[in-house]
Simulated assay, not measured.
Amino acid sequence: MLPADMSLTAAFALSVLVAVAAKTGAWLWQLRTRNAGMVDAIWAWTLGGLAGLYALCGDAPAVLRLLVAVMGGAWGLRLGWHLWVRNHGKAEDWRYAQLRKEWGAGADSKMFWFFQFQNVFTLMLAASAFAPVAYRDTMPPAWAIGLAVLLWFGSIAGEGIADRQMERFRANPANKGTVCRDGLWRYSRHPNYFFECVHWAAYVPLALGAPWGWVSLAAPAIMAFLLLKLSGVPMLEAEMSRRKPGYDAYVRSTSALIPWPPKA
């Protein structure tokens, strides 16, 4: 049986401390390694950990809190490990290298506050997805639980497949400088981002009937905003268009997010 009954306010305050500590640790790591890209893995692990924190602190039925802890924790563990392996021991991700170059002598201090600014979205995601599920008196309908598990499993599997397809493409020297159209990448320019949004939608059915259940709708909306408007697609596609011949044609023919048959 999970312990319970810490107030939601106290749980949120604790989540703030955890997020700030995690990003401070990431900042200290990049001071030593000069590779800020590792913060991406720590972001995923932190969010997975916050799923467990809300589950431990909440007052919902124990089986529901255990479910949200497993769903959020497993998601964070897989994605964090993927990002860690992708970045560890390699050159700094071009996004952070570009920021370091633009910031010059003040890069270290600005990187610290940039990492902490990311926590605003980390905390919003965790609170909107996990808190409405962990803080409720009743169980959602059985069909809603089934739908949540189905969405979660599909998102984890889909994102994992997309990541492996891109890894195989990049590992082939013959593909250097070309655009990946293999597998899911034929139908979406960012299938991994699509399944990331689906993951955050998986908590919405679990919040059905909860007093603040509607708040859970914010989680997939926040993630879609981040990926489509802020730090995902705009930055990445501007860089890909500059570096890869044929990427503009790929943009014209292929859906940005939702997998869909490409245009002729």
Rank of each mutant, 00 (worst) to 15 (best):
L2V: 05
G146D: 02
L31M: 14
V68P: 01
M111Q: 14
A105M: 11
F169V: 07
V16K: 00
G72V: 12
L2T: 07
V233F: 13
M166C: 04
L53M: 10
N192F: 06
R252T: 11
Q118Y: 11
V149M: 00
V251M: 14
R170C: 07
V198D: 05
F114R: 12
N119P: 04
M1R: 15
Q116V: 09
V120C: 13
A22R: 02
V133Q: 00
A202Y: 01
E102F: 03
P261W: 01
R78L: 00
F195S: 03
I161E: 06
A129F: 02
D163F: 10
G209C: 03
M124G: 04
G154Y: 06
G177Y: 02
L50G: 02
F153M: 13
G209E: 00
G158C: 06
M139T: 13
V120S: 12
G183N: 04
V233N: 08
R65G: 08
L77W: 04
L236P: 05
F112W: 15
S241R: 15
V215Y: 03
A11M: 04
N87K: 07
G80E: 12
A148I: 02
T9D: 00
A256G: 10
L99C: 09
V204C: 08
Q30R: 13
R136K: 01
W45K: 01
P132A: 00
A174H: 11
V179S: 08
A36L: 11
P261N: 11
R170A: 15
F12C: 01
N119R: 05
C197E: 12
A210M: 06
M1Q: 14
L64H: 02
V16I: 15
C180D: 09
G232F: 04
V251H: 10
A10T: 00
M223H: 09
A105E: 15
L67Q: 07
Q30Y: 13
S7W: 01
L125F: 14
T122C: 03
W152E: 08
P261G: 08
G154N: 11
F225L: 05
A162G: 07
L47W: 12
R168H: 10
V233P: 08
L208A: 15
L99Q: 14
P234Q: 10
L28E: 02
G146A: 05
W143T: 11
L2I: 07
F115T: 09
L67K: 09
Q30A: 12
S155R: 03
D5P: 04
K90R: 15
L17R: 06
V39K: 14
M240H: 13
L67N: 04
A131P: 03
P234E: 09
Y96A: 08
V18S: 00
I156R: 09
L184V: 06
N175R: 10
A26W: 08
R243I: 07
T138G: 11
F225E: 06
A127R: 04
A19M: 12
G89M: 01
C180P: 09
A13C: 03
M71I: 11
F153C: 14
W212R: 04
T254M: 04
N35V: 02
P141C: 11
F195R: 05
F130D: 07
P140L: 00
V179W: 11
K176S: 13
A157G: 07
D182L: 12
L79E: 11
A221G: 05
N175K: 08
K244L: 15
G209H: 03
V204F: 13
A207P: 01
A264N: 14
V85S: 10
A13L: 04
